[in-house]
Amino acid sequence: MHRRSAGLASLSRLEHTTQSYAQLSHHLSTTQISSLHAQLSQFRTALSAFAYTHRDSIRKDPAFRHAFQKMCVSIGVDPLAGPRKGGWWAEMLGLGDFNYELGVQVVDVCVSTRERNGGVIEMRELVGLVGKLRGVGSEAITEEDIVLSIKTLEPLGSGYQVIEVGGRKMVRSVVGELDEDQTVVLSVARENGGRLVEDTLIVSQGWTRDRARAALDNTLLRDGLCWLDEQDETTGHAYWFFSAMDWKE
């Protein structure tokens, strides 16, 4: 029967064993880390190589770009993030520039149509106008691109926001919330081709005349989101929402 020996020699042997174990574990974790590093850099190289090879497709083909963006998100790579200016996309693809450029064009369209629509523009119209601004022959732009480029504007505190009104995406470029009634007003206006009168709100929403008038007047006078028409055939006082109208420029 083995019995652990007593004495100094045994003590030093124990210490020796512990040390060996520590060394071994250190060695193992170092190997693991370095292998992880290797894998990571391999992945990065692969992703970069992929991005680089498909650079043109990513830049030109909106569907491909969207798929690539989704892939990046699902593996936890934020293409916009990064310690460097512009982030990883900018570094790899020049796509940072793409987003910034698009952001500038989004701002351009929002600002130049603001007086007309009060700072709320429908996504479809925005996509169309930005596309026009980029000129013929340039790559197509999708809603996802616009949303992403608005995200790049966030650090500027620009207040650009994508909102949903009556199931439609709209981009709001003015600071300040639309109150609940105004959101309803905007969506009812859309259903009516942009024209709205007090009675429509009273009938369809069950509002009192005062509430309908207050909501419309706030929208008209305070926010400039709609225009007044005093030659309306039925009421002589109709509100028109340019952002809810179909413009064929």
Partner: peptide, 8 residues
Amino acid sequence: APPFFTQQ
């Protein structure tokens, strides 16, 4: 646009 003919 109808409201274009009304002073805003």
